[in-house]
């Protein structure tokens, strides 16, 4: 698997190890592809955020670069009308279920959604779709951080960090469909769970769902239901 191969991403010749995931090959070579859910260290790609689409010569449809392994002579385009359209729709869908609150958000200017919008020239507001956000329920029970499920984009990174990295197992996905969310067992408070408050989830969260209390700009004017 360690054989070196060359491929072309956006007219740039790139060297990579055979079998590596295309997303990380591109990122390592300074070529940005929007992404939220994939982690370099994860054993299996979840492919759930559906933002990292690229076009590969010879394939009829855009593919997610996190699931695509590189091979010799592969020709990749990270931008095309179809890729841009899929990203625009996928991004707007995520925004439609994300409480837009940038100015007061703890992750302002460090948010992956803001980065994607900046890189691809997308608006951080809804242009076509309706806002679906559920009521914000902020869990402030841990000592130094908070969990705001209305900001969560369900990328699952925190669950990976919790279960695979620090091996605690305090959080996981519950429910399904539009009701799917990251929560503790029986959807209780983090402080009441087996959470060790190691902050691994805070470090890995790409948006403002898990954030440090010290980063909070101004107190939220939202009724806290804890």
């Amino acid at each position: 698997m360690s054989k070196l191969i060359t491929l072309i991403i956006d007219d740039k010749q790139v060297e990579a190890k055979e079998g590596e995931r295309l997303l990380w090959v591109a990122l390592d070579n300074g070529i940005y592809i929007p992404h939220l859910c994939d982690l370099r260290m994860a054993r299996r790609t979840v492919a759930s955020c559906r933002l990292c689409f690229v076009e590969i010569e010879g394939l009829p449809n855009p593919v997610t670069s996190c699931t695509q392994t590189v091979s010799e002579g592969m020709v990749v385009r990270t931008r095309s009308p179809r890729v841009d359209r899929l990203l625009r729709t996928g991004f707007e869908l995520l925004l439609s279920n994300h409480r837009l609150h940038c100015a007061k958000c703890a992750k302002n200017k460090r948010c992956e959604l803001q980065k994607i919008a900046k890189e691809r020239g997308l608006k951080l507001k809804l242009t076509r779709l309706r806002q679906l956000v559920k009521e914000a329920q902020i869990d402030e029970s841990p000592g130094v951080f908070c969990y705001d499920s209305s900001k969560c984009v369900l990328c699952g990174r925190c669950i990976w960090a919790d279960q695979e990295q620090v091996k605690v197992g305090a959080i996981g996905f519950i429910r399904r469909g539009i009701g799917r969310k990251v929560a503790t067992f029986e959807d209780g408070l983090l402080a009441d769970s087996i959470c060790t408050q190691c902050e691994a989830c805070v470090k890995i969260c790409p948006v403002g769902a898990f954030y440090l209390k010290e980063d909070e700009r101004k107190p939220y004017k939202i009724k806290k239901e804890c």
């Binding site: 979840v46 492919a47 759930s48 955020c49 559906r50 933002l51 729709t89 996928g90 869908l93 995520l94 439609s96 279920n97 779709l129 309706r130 679906l132 369900l154 996905f173 429910r175 399904r176 469909g177 539009i178 009701g179 799917r180």
Partner: peptide
């Protein structure tokens, strides 16, 4: 389909909900 979506991926979870609305 919206009710039966598992909720894993963006397009199915939110896209079907938007279309249904």
């Amino acid at each position: 389909t919206q009710k039966e979506s598992c909720g894993k991926c963006t397009f199915c979870r939110l896209g079907t909900k938007q279309m249904l609305d």
